[in-house]
Amino acid sequence: MGGIFVFAKVENGVPSRSTLELLGGAQKIAAGLEEPVTAGLLGQGDAALLYAYGVETVYRVDHPLLKEYQADLHLLALERIGRTAEPRVILLPGDSLGRDLAGRLAFRLQTGIVTEVIDIDVHPSEKSLRFTRQAYGGKAIAAIVPKAFPVVATLKPRTFDPAARAGDRTGTEIPVEAPLDGAQAGTRLVERVQEETTGVKLEDAQVVISGGRGLGGPEGFDLLVELARVLKGAVGSSRAATDAGWVPSSMQVGQTGKTVSPDLYIAVGISGATQHVAGISGAKTIVAINTDPEASIFKVAHLGIVGDYKAILPPLIARCRELVGG
C-alpha cells in the first residue's frame, strides 16, 4: 500500500514536539517517494490537528488500556495499525518511547530498522530510501539502505525541523480494532516521578551550560545555575556528573541523555567523551572551559578557555549580568 507512517502523539490540543519532528522528516521524503503521509494515534487525540500538517489518513486505536503508557499494550496497538496501514516507512521518535518500542515492532513485523536517523533522502530516479546516522559516537557517518519493508526508523530528537502547517486540510480517519486485555501487559507501572527542574527545558533552551567531572562536586553546579539564570538558559551535565550522583539523570546531555541544539553551549569541566559529544553536534557555538588543554572537548569546541572554572565563571556571570541588565 505504501505511505510514510508517523506514530503521532497529541498532547494538550497540539501535536507533540517529537510528532512535529517526525512529520518534518515525513514531509522531507513524501514528495520524492510520491507517497502520502499517514499517522497512527492511540487514544482520543484530535486527528484534525494532524491533517493540518499534511497527514492524509489517521489510523486510530481507541481503547481505555492505552490511556497510560504501557509498552506491551502500546506495541500490540501499533503492530495492529502497522499491519492495517502497510506503509513503506514507519517513523518513531528516537526518545524513550522509540527505545522501548521500535526494535520490538520491527521484530514483530519481521522487517528492518534504522535508529537515531539524522537525515533521510530519496533517490530521485529509483525512488529508493537512504538513511543517515552517526556511528562510533559520531566519529563516522553511516548511510543505510533498507532491504525489507516497511522499514522502521527512529529519528534522533532535535535533529529534524518540526513540520510547517500545511493549512486547512481534511483527511480520513480509519478506526483499527485491537483486542487488548490487561493480562497482555507484562510490566506494571508503580510510580512516575517528574524530575524536571524549573526554568527553561534543556531540550528547548537556546543557551545550555553543562558541567562535568571537572566541577569536582555537586556544589560546582551552583555557578552554572547562576550563569544559566542570567542567560535565560538551562543547565545540563555529562554522564560522569550524573553517574557520580551530583545531578539527576534528566539533566544528562549526550548519547544516552538528551540531544540539545542551542545557539550557545558552554561545557564546563567536561572532558568531551564521545558519549557526550554525540548529544551536542547540533549546537551552533560551543565554548569549552577546562583546566586540561589536551581535553577532547577542545576538538569540538569553537572557543576554548584553558583555566579553572572557579576563576572564569564569576567574572563571566558578572559581565553577562551587566550586558543583560543594561
Binding site: 530498522i113 563516522a140 557517518i141 548511510a143 533498507p146 532491504k147 569546541a301 583555566g307 572564569i312 567574572p315
Partner: peptide, 27 residues
C-alpha cells in the same frame, strides 16, 4: 534487513580558538 551502504568520516572538524590571558582577559 538493512544494509550499510557507506561509512565515512564526518567532514566537520572545527578548529578551536583558544582565548589566552588572565581569567579577566579571557572572559
Amino acid at each position: 534487513r538493512v544494509e550499510i551502504q557507506e561509512l565515512t568520516l564526518p567532514t566537520r572538524e572545527s578548529r578551536c580558538e583558544f582565548l589566552e590571558g588572565e581569567p579577566g582577559g579571557q572572559v
